[in-house]
Design a binder for these strands. Structure first.
Lengths: 182, 182
DNA sequence: TTGAAAACTGGCCGATCGGTCAGTCAGGAT
DNA sequence: ATCCTGACTGACCGATCGGCCAGTTTTCAA
């Protein structure tokens, strides 16, 4: 709680903030380091002074969401199997709304995701989460869960078109129709 | 037909063939004209001799699917409203399986789709098709239809993982669970 | 006040991109 | 035999990319 944020942290935060907006608006691949630097009010060299490279900027943008997903997976691991699917559906909806901007960014990264080792952890957690959403080892259930995640990612694409409440309702409805087989 | 395919058509076809494979494997943005030329056994200049630019190559790759979608929309227009949703679901499933490779390619183009006027027709038809899938003007129904299309696009991403029959079953199940409200 | 460390930057690099262009070449028509 | 034309190509272009580095400016503890 310093009276003034140290210069390092202040600049770093601004870079991540602006990178987030640009990644959402134009996509990761279409956003250059120069774009990020200009938006953050510094030089491209400064961006590379704070981050080891473009993928590191991406990892910093995704980090809060990645942490939440990791925590969710941790909680799911400790839950009795009978409760995991319902818990996964409910909490995944929460995270999707909370981090809808990040969901948007992820869309654009998927095609080149194997070239970005910085976010391998998030990818692995996402796969585990999908398995919990499926609720069984059945191939069709697994595929439907992946279908649901893909659909949800797509729905987060256009930020201004939906309020958080609308997104929550859509997400919840879609997941329950696709996944719940009581 | 002709004993020997005219050189023009032969080269053109090979370029489209190879571009299709590369777009699927690596994505449109990550595939360079040089990549396509090398795969097709000609020079980059030859690709640009046959096509006015990279977007024109994309349009040629998508053309068969675009034609089928246009035909489907035409048929839907002439159908009584009580039959359109069921017809759309059934035929859309058919087209998704038939053109699953194209569905894969489209995924990668969506972020930059507004910069590719060559495929504006396919985009417009896709939107109209989504409206028929929704079955009503209700916002949630519309969103669920878009959700379904996004999910389906995502499921076509990894070509080798599913047989056509598995994809058909998944597609049909998911669409009916999401869309049908009887 | 001062000096060393931290923060920052302009300029440059090699690579790659989509695209252009002048010119080569085979082969059918005359 | 000549010419013409469609198919094709190597060389090159300007732009842009991510990244690097030497050097300048700012910060802050001693």
């Amino acid at each position: 709680m310093a009276v003034t944020t140290p210069a390092r942290e202040r600049t770093r935060r601004e870079i991540v903030r602006q990178a987030m907006d640009l990644f959402q608006a134009a996509g990761y691949n279409a956003t250059s380091l120069q774009d990020i630097a200009t938006a953050a009010g510094c030089s491209k060299a400064t961006v590379l002074y704070h981050f080891s490279g473009k993928p590191a900027v991406l990892a910093a943008v995704l980090e809060p969401a990645a942490a939440d997903v990791a925590e969710l997976v941790r909680q799911l691991t400790a839950l009795p199997p009978s409760e995991t699917q319902e818990f996964a559906i409910r909490r995944f909806t929460d995270l999707a709304v909370l981090h809808r901007g990040v969901m948007d960014v992820i869309q654009d990264v998927i095609p080149v995701i194997e070239n970005v080792p910085e976010i391998a952890g998030l990818v692995a957690d996402g796969i585990r989460l999908t398995e919990y959403l499926a609720g069984s080892d059945d191939t069709l259930d697994r595929d439907l869960a992946k279908f649901a995640v893909n659909g949800l990612l797509g729905e987060c694409r256009y930020p201004g078109e939906r309020t958080d409440d609308e997104l929550r309702r859509l997400c919840d409805t879609a997941l329950r129709r696709l996944l719940r087989r009581d």
